[in-house]
Every structure is written in structure tokens, then in C-alpha cells.
Design a protein around this nucleic acid. Structure first.
Lengths: 113, 113
DNA sequence: TGTGGAGTTGACATACAACTCAACATTTGC
DNA sequence: GCAAATGTTGAGTTGTATGTCAACTCCACA
């Protein structure tokens, strides 16, 4: 499932036209068309988030489909040395989705307890 | 401590000239000078890693000083939906260095046990 | 049939990242 | 004190990201 195919599916499900989606996100409608048809690479991560806001969906799935991190996440994670180490290890381990979910639980426990 | 100041310190500690460092990493020596003096923004993450290889140091500290993630890390983490969720939560929580280290322990336990 | 909504396409624009090159200045070893 | 090593600076280059604009097509339907 490419980014474009996914975007088209989500947009149709939301029942909006390319023009409506583009206007909501402050983009040109022709740009949406080219994205959906894979004519150009996926947009900037922050643009993906803006599109998801209009489509009223969580951005994770679309972000994952284009392999990008939102700018704020990138900044906060990139600035920490321990986070850099963590991510390098995680990257080398090729974690499964379930393993990432386990880490999310560990994350929650950090502050809950 | 800016990226440039840190780079200069690490380079001096390693006892190499700007020209030697640049040659090892396949760069122009004038580029190193400008980086050290903060005349230009930090280089691409992969270039930082290349510099660290020449300086024989671990890349995390320099990477953190410029807030960037290596391309391979970015790709592997960005492609996972669960990793996207994890990082968005982690980002919002503004984790301390120690908390990131705790998560590294959790990461290790995932596969050890 | 012709009009309006929806989508597609090609050409172009703009900005920034990530450098190089050539010239000059400064420092250091002897 | 001077030659070689080292460092600094300004201008220019190249590529990629991230789009816009104008022109077009296609289709439903009144």
C-alpha cells in the first residue's frame, strides 16, 4: 500500500474532494492529485499531519507510509544523546510492531509508577 | 555547547588538522572550518557519522548537538506505525536522559528474556 | 448539449541543504 | 623571521524538497 493509494482511500472514506482537502490544508489541489497517483514523492511530514487533521484521522498510518517523522518529534528526539543511542539500537534490532507496543507500555510505566 | 565548538574540541583531542579530518571524510577542509566557527548549519547526519568515524568517537554526542537522526535510523523508525506512536508520545513527555536510558534497558530486556 | 465539478498533467518556481573552489590570513616549528 | 602548515572567508554550485499555475480532460446530469 503506497502513500498515494492510502491517501486516496482515506480521502474517499472521509467523503471530500481533492479540492476540499487541498483547501483545508492550504495546498494546491493538483498537488493532491499527483500525490495520490504517485507522480511525486510524499509531502513533508508536517503536511501529512495537516492532511490528517482535515481527514479527521490519526496521522501515524500515513506518516509510516512515507517513512517520515513530524518536525517536532524529530527535534525533541534528535536533541537527546540517550534517545540517539536508544534509537540506533532499536533500529539495528528491527523491532516488530508488537515490540514497539511493548515499549510504549514501558514508556507509560515510566511516569505512571 | 554548539555543534561547532564540540566538533573543534573533539578534533583537537583526536590530534588531527581540519585538512586531515576533511580528507578522511571526503569533504573540503574549508567546510570543516566553517562548521567549527558556526558560519553554516551542521552537516547531514550521515556526514556527522563519517566525521566521528575519522575522529574515532561514538556519534551520539555530535548527532545530539545538531538534532539530527542518521538516515538509516530515520528510515527504519519512520516506516513503523507503532514506532511513530511511541515517538510521538515520548516526544510529548519530554523524557530526561535517565528515562531514555531506562527505555534502553526495556529494549534490551525485550530480546534477552 | 453544454455547463460545472472533479481529476490529471507538464512546466515552472522557490528555497534550502550541503557542500566546493580560490584566495587570503594566521599560526607554528625551526 | 620565514616557510610550511593550518585556518578563515566570500562567492558560487548542485541537487532535492516542496510545492504552484495554467491548461487540459472526463464525466454526470439538467
Amino acid at each position: 500500500m503506497t502513500f498515494g493509494e492510502l491517501l486516496r482511500e482515506k480521502r474517499r472514506t472521509a467523503g471530500v474532494s481533492q479540492r476540499e482537502l487541498a483547501a483545508g490544508a492550504g495546498l494546491d489541489f493538483s498537488y493532491i492529485s499527483k500525490l495520490e497517483n504517485g507522480r511525486i514523492p510524499p509531502p513533508a511530514a508536517d503536511t501529512v499531519v495537516a492532511l490528517c487533521r482535515i481527514l479527521k484521522i490519526e496521522p501515524e498510518e500515513l506518516l509510516a507510509a512515507c517513512g517520515k517523522l513530524p518536525a517536532d518529534v524529530q527535534a525533541s528526539v534528535g536533541a537527546s544523546q540517550a534517545a540517539q543511542s536508544f534509537l540506533q539500537n532499536a533500529s539495528q534490532m528491527s523491532l516488530t510492531e508488537n515490540e514497539w507496543k511493548e515499549l510504549s507500555s514501558s514508556l507509560k510505566r515510566l511516569r505512571d509508577s
